[in-house]
Design a protein around this nucleic acid. Structure first.
Lengths: 197, 197
DNA sequence: CGTCTATTTGAATGTACTCAAAAGCGGTGG
DNA sequence: CCACCGCTTTTGAGTACATTCAAATAGACG
C-alpha cells in the first residue's frame, strides 16, 4: 500500500480535531511506521508489552480478553480511521492483558511511546488531539456500560445496529455476540425473531 | 465546614499527580466554590446543564440514569477525593441525561467551565492532571465492561467487594445492585448464599 | 473442490427477574 | 427516649430470559 496515501488518510483524520502547519504534518507522519497484518494475525498478544498506538488505514481488528476458563470476550472493534491498543499496557509498560487480532487483511500506522512524547514536545496541539480522542472513548464507554446494565440482549443488539450499522455487517456474528455479552446461539435466535416481525 | 481544610484536602489530592508552586495553589483554590448537600439533595438533575466538575471533600453521591420505564440505573458512585459530573453535559453544554444525588450529607468543591479554562491557561500542569484523571477513568470503565460481559452476577459482586470494600459497606444495597446490573432481590440472595459458604 | 469454521436449529437446563408479603432498620416527631 | 412511619432488605414461589449441549446446515478460504 502507498505510504503517501496512508499519510494522507491519517492527516485527514487529525484535521478533524486540530490544524497543523505543513512542517508539523511532516514531523508527525515521520514518526509513523506502516505495517500490514494478514487475517488472524496478532497485532498484540497477552503477555507482551503494547509498544504502539495503531491507527487503521484499512481493514478490521478486534481486541479481546481470554479468561481463566479459556473463553474469549471482545472488548473493542476497530475499522478504518479508528485507533487501537492496550492503553493500560502502552502507558505503564506492563504486560498486556488482551489480544488484538486482525479480522481482515489490515494496514495500520503505528506510533510508539517515544514517538508520542516527542510529538507532544514538538507539536503541543497533539495533547489536545489525544485528549479529545480519550474523552470520546470515555463517553462511548459510559454509554456502553449503561446499555449493559439497563438493557436486555435484544435491546443491546438493536442499539448496536443503530450505532454501528457498518460493523454489524462486517464482523463475524460470534464476535459481535461476545462484544454484546451474549452467546452466538442466542444472537442467532434474536436475529431470527427480528426477521419475523 | 472550614474552607481552609477543604482547600488543604483537594491540594493533597492534586499533589498526587502534579507539583504546584504556592502561587499556583492559591490561584487554583481561588477558582473553587464550596457547596454542601443534604441527604437526597440533587447536585444535578437530568435536563439541566452540568456547569461544574465537583470534588467531594466528604460524604457520598451517586450518578444514575432514569430510563423511559422510570427505572433507575446507577452509573457511578463518588466518595471523598473523587470527582463527579455529567462529563458529556459539562463539555458541550447540552442538557444532562443523568441525575447526581447525595446519599449522605456531602461537601464538595466546584470548578466551572470558565474556571477550568482559565486554569489550563494559567497553570498548564492541570492539563496533565485532568488527562491522567480521564485516563484512569477510561481504564476503570474498560475493566467494568469486561466484568459486565464476562462475569455472572455473583462474580461481579465479588469483584466489587475486592475493588471497593469501603463502598460496599457504605451505600444502600439497592444502589449497589443497580450499579452491578442486577435486581436488589437477587443481590440479597447472593449475599445470603455467600454467608453459607 | 474439500476442509474448516461459523451459523442455525431444537431441547433441556440454569440464571436472574417479577410479584407479593414479611421483617428489619433508621429517621422523625411526640 | 420511645413509638411510629416509611423505606430497604429479606424470603419464597413462579416465570422469563439466556445458556449449554448436540447435531445439522451453510459459508468461506486455501
Amino acid at each position: 500500500m502507498d505510504i503517501a496515501i496512508m499519510h494522507e488518510r491519517i492527516l485527514q483524520h487529525v484535521a478533524m480535531h486540530i490544524s497543523l502547519t505543513p512542517h508539523e504534518k511532516t514531523f508527525f507522519t515521520g514518526l509513523l511506521k506502516p505495517r500490514s497484518f494478514r487475517r488472524r494475525q496478532f497485532l498484540l498478544q497477552a503477555g507482551d508489552v503494547c509498544r504502539h498506538e495503531s491507527f487503521l488505514v484499512s481493514g478490521c481488528m478486534h481486541a479481546y480478553y481470554t479468561d481463566r476458563n479459556g473463553d474469549d470476550h471482545v472488548l473493542h472493534f476497530a475499522i478504518e480511521d479508528w485507533w487501537i491498543s492496550d492503553f493500560q499496557s502502552f502507558l505503564d509498560g506492563k504486560p498486556a492483558q488482551i489480544n488484538i487480532e486482525a479480522l481482515e487483511p489490515t494496514w495500520v500506522l503505528q506510533l510508539d511511546h517515544p514517538g508520542l512524547e516527542s510529538l507532544y514536545r514538538e507539536v503541543p496541539a497533539f495533547e489536545r488531539f489525544f485528549r479529545i480522542l480519550h474523552q470520546n472513548a470515555y463517553l462511548a464507554q459510559n454509554q456502553r456500560i449503561l446499555n449493559n446494565i439497563s438493557q436486555t440482549a435484544p435491546e443491546r443488539y438493536e442499539a448496536f445496529l443503530e450505532r454501528y450499522p457498518q460493523l454489524a455487517e462486517r464482523v463475524p456474528q460470534k464476535y459481535l455476540a461476545s462484544y454484546l455479552g451474549m452467546t452466538p446461539v442466542f444472537l442467532s435466535q434474536i436475529r431470527k425473531k427480528r426477521m419475523g416481525s
